[in-house]
Amino acid sequence: MSNFLDLDVVRAEEAPAPKPLRDLLASVPASAPRPHLSPQISDQLATQHGFASRDHSDRFLGATPVGRRHARGLPVEETKQLSIRMPLSLYTEFLAYADDRKLTYSDAIRALLNQRK
């Protein structure tokens, strides 16, 4: 028989049963957009920590390093992709026209359009 029979039984407080995740989810509201930190401030902080821009679309908008040729495709204005189907003979003739004059295809189209003026 226990020597502690005359003591009040000490019952450990039972922790409340954790709510199932599905119930918890019901109380989560939709995300609310928050005012943003200015990108300049964020980027400045990031630079101090050794972070750098990896956005290539922005990188090519900067100045071209001295002594280096302009990167091909330097976007002087917005660009669009043109993909067209044409007879093989026309295709061959167009490529020969561009190659003979050492023109990019877009420059070759520009040259042909200029001839029309």
């Binding site: 964020s42 980027d43 902080l45 990031a46 050794g50 972070f51 750098a52 990896r54 956005d55």
Partner: peptide
């Protein structure tokens, strides 16, 4: 990577 996108 450690990019501006990460910090933003």
């Amino acid at each position: 990577t450690a990019s501006f996108l990460v910090s933003r």
